[in-house]
Amino acid sequence: TDAKRSNVAAPPQSALATARIISDINAVAYPEGVSSPRPELNENAKEGKFRYDREFLLQFMSICKEKPAMLPPLDAIGLEPVDQSSLGLTR
């Protein structure tokens, strides 16, 4: 399927947009060093209705950094960081 992989990277959101939903969380094998969700959280899980513990979720933090395609410009909705110097922080 990767017949014509070019030098140009695919649009970054393509994997997220085309990835399918995991249907059986217990069938997923994670690479060494990555923990599965705590099994007791999903003992009787219905398809796609999974619970995740914090330690499991935190593992994604440094990997999933892609800005969501649907995120509006933050300043357009008044979501702007305050000037840190005005907080009187001394670092």
Binding site: C64, K65, E66, K67, L71, L74
Partner: peptide, 12 residues
């Protein structure tokens, strides 16, 4: 989960 972190990493 993946979309949550994409948002978290791009918001204030």
């Amino acid at each position: 989960v993946e979309e949550f972190w994409g948002l978290y990493n791009n918001i204030i």
